[in-house]
């Protein structure tokens, strides 16, 4: 089959692992993001790993003018077009507290921008009756915590968007996987104190691929975060509001 993956946020090490995994099975990859030099290097690596085709596309969640050309290209592509969104940003909560205007950027990067992009791709998936969307959210979106609730709220919004999109695309044969990673060993978490049970980006990528193959709706990765979050969600708000975890 003629499968293409548009990978948004291709500079993320999680995205890199995912791009390599789909390249190794011979899919085409379009690597989208802001640091085009870096993404160019990844494109070569993916071709050498067996990607049918590897291409670099500019995508900036804060510049909607970069969305149109991607949608147009997807429209023109043959075969099944799939999308995986790894875009997100997590400035320290303290920085946002000091400068509330940062909030807009977090919401744009982690929710509004990617959602708008996916909204432009949805009709293509509907028209072809096939295609998978992978949206990387976060366990941080399951409950607002003092330490990073702006990021968490953007991810929660993205989760809700993804569940609605799933509801929509299922009708025409498309599918949406919501991915909620716990702590992953990437640039985002490197050097942040308090990380535990940190997973390798490759492990997350392989969980995502399995979820895509089995048409899972929402996954936690690594799997045990489902239980951790079950506990965290079940703490009564009256107690939770006094906790700092």
């Amino acid at each position: 089959m003629n499968e293409t993956w548009i990978i948004f946020g291709a500079t993320s090490s999680m995205a890199r692992a995912f791009a390599r995994a789909v390249s190794e099975r011979g899919d085409a990859v379009w690597l989208a993001g802001r640091d085009l030099a870096d993404i160019g290097a990844l494109a070569t690596d993916c071709s050498l790993r067996g990607a049918a085709h590897a291409e670099v596309l500019e995508f900036d969640a804060r510049k909607p003018e970069t969305f149109g050309p991607i949608a147009a290209k997807a429209e023109a592509a043959e075969g099944t077009v799939n999308a995986a969104v790894f875009v997100g940003s997590m400035p320290p909560q303290a920085d946002i507290d000091a400068d509330p205007s940062l909030l807009d950027g977090v919401v744009t990067d982690s929710h509004a921008g990617p959602a708008r992009m996916l909204h432009m791709l949805a009709p293509i998936i509907e028209a072809r009756g096939a295609g998978c969307v992978v949206g990387v959210g976060s366990v941080a979106g399951d409950r607002g915590r003092i330490g990073n609730y702006v990021y968490g709220s953007a991810k929660a919004g993205f989760h809700t968007y993804l569940s609605g999109l799933r509801n929509r695309l299922t009708r025409s044969g498309g599918h949406v996987v919501t991915v909620k990673p716990g702590f992953v060993d990437t640039a985002m978490t490197w050097g942040i104190p308090g990380m535990f049970l940190v997973a390798a980006p490759e492990a997350v990528a392989s969980d995502i691929l399995k979820a895509v193959a089995r048409k899972r709706d929402t996954i936690y990765t690594p799997f045990f975060w489902r239980f951790i979050m079950l506990i965290i969600r079940s703490i009564p708000e009256r107690i939770f509001k006094k906790m700092s975890i």
Binding site: S13, A37, A41
Partner: peptide, 8 residues
């Protein structure tokens, strides 16, 4: 430091 890309 653990850079993920050339520029870093």
């Amino acid at each position: 430091a653990r850079p993920e890309r050339q520029s870093s």
